[in-house]
Design a protein around this nucleic acid. Structure first.
Lengths: 195, 195
DNA sequence: TTTGATTTTGAACGTATGTTCAAGTTAAAA
DNA sequence: TTTTAACTTGAACATACGTTCAAAATCAAA
């Protein structure tokens, strides 16, 4: 190698992702990005090909981060549902001051793109499916450990979880309703355990 | 009056709203709008002041339409929960081929705007609060008619309804999962009746 | 038929956008 | 020290954007 790449690719993707997550793809300009990640157009385009390329990497990274976060909460919990509960509380309540948006970046993506923006639309669907698979495996384990009944299949639990979490994250994407969140999250997990 | 306005204001707002609902505010250009509503820039700007002005009217109109639609389902149902059930089925399943998006335009707005776009951000919050009040009145009636228990207050039912519906509309904003929708909607209303 | 306030038209404006590329810089290898 | 391939820079490009405005068209009233 003749000259080392100066920027740290992972970190750049993460910072860009924060901007994209907050403002959305269309409302984020390449000049916003240049400033946020401290790179000039030529470097960005040689590294990522396009604004869309950088967004793609950011959205993939977001999904991985979210799964990593769940893994970390599971590691520190006695059972799967407690881990998921801690994750949800963290996502909705504890990160309130330090996140770009309460709403999941995947959900924002799925909301922003139509099948006209086909690449990004397809990507958002594929990553959502991947995340649902990930959750399904967790609920398979929860059923196997008798944490929840087998009235529903694992994938049905996963869907219920996703629907409810997405709804809550959307609902709490506004100021001044903090104290409601805790009880609505508790209600969510009471429901899951009684489905 | 010296010269009548040629366009029909309500219809223009509705058509513009369909475009905004599908593509979002930032991804809809004024030239897209010109073509969709068949008006030239000067007319649009004299009638609505700006792209933001037209969007504002469209989002207000969307909220009214949604409430009108619920009213119509309530009128044709024997009780409030059956009316809401019919509304949800219609929203998620029956209008599949003829709507700009499965996702509520209010939710899309709340997802798209940050407090930097302050006017539209505030508007989306205000309309969401208005809609929650509307739902709360309905659930007050449902409690009074003993359709549901008074374990929760009316506003808590309204919140649960909104969270669940938003989650479902997001979940079914993709192709090929039609037959799941019916059973998840049924589950939603079973839960409401047993809260 | 003429008037005149109002609405419609569409060319044009200034700016912001995504992207390109020639020139400059870097540092490992020769 | 020189070479050289890789990386970075930032001015510049073409286009798309939201918006304006002078001119043309419209039609109820005089």
């Amino acid at each position: 190698m003749v000259n080392k790449i100066k920027f740290e690719r992972e970190n750049v993707i993460r910072v860009a992702g924060q901007l994209f997550w907050e403002k959305g793809f269309h409302a984020t300009s390449t000049r916003d990005l240049q400033e946020a990640i401290n790179m000039r157009p030529g470097s960005i385009y040689s590294a990522f090909g396009s604004k869309e390329g950088l967004y793609t990497e950011s959205l993939k990274d977001y999904t991985i981060q979210m799964e990593d976060q769940i893994e970390s909460f599971l590691y520190n919990s006695d059972c799967i549902l407690d881990g998921l509960h801690a994750f949800v509380v963290n996502t909705i309540i504890e990160t309130k001051e330090c996140r770009p948006s309460a709403i999941c970046m995947l959900v924002k993506a799925n909301s922003e793109f139509t099948d006209k923006d086909s690449n990004l639309y397809d990507l958002s669907l594929a990553l959502a499916a991947k995340f649902e698979n990930y959750l399904t495996v967790l609920f398979e384990q929860a059923i196997a450990h008798n944490e929840i009944s087998n009235t529903l299949t694992a994938i049905e639990y996963a869907r219920f979880f996703q629907v409810h979490l997405t709804g809550l994250r959307g609902y709490f994407n506004r100021p001044g309703v903090e104290q409601l969140a805790q009880q609505m999250i508790n209600q969510m997990f009471i429901l899951i355990k009684n489905l």
